[in-house]
């Protein structure tokens, strides 16, 4: 559920509706820099109506999904 939503947000952000994303995809592979990551976290905060602490380095989609699941638990 969270993963699917994250993928949707990512595809919209990159304007690539067919973008292949898995839990193991890294931001680097997705050609996203650190500010893109912050931007995506902000969009996810709005989308999931929650506040996400970015106190650990986010490298993979699994990291982001984990943070959101923790935030909305």
């Amino acid at each position: 559920m969270v993963f699917e939503k994250v993928v949707e947000i990512l595809r919209n952000y990159k304007e690539e509706p067919e973008l292949e994303v898995s839990m193991d995809s890294t931001f680097e592979e997705l050609e996203l820099d650190s500010l893109d990551t912050v931007e995506l976290v902000m969009e996810m905060e709005e989308s999931f109506d929650t506040s996400i602490e970015m106190d650990t380095e986010l490298k993979t989609i699994a990291d982001v999904v984990g943070l959101i699941e923790k935030a909305i638990a």
């Binding site: 500010l35 990551t37 976290v41 902000m42």
Partner: peptide
């Protein structure tokens, strides 16, 4: 903390 400042600034 660049990430925090970015979020604050936007």
């Amino acid at each position: 903390d660049g990430d925090e400042v970015y979020r604050f600034a936007v």
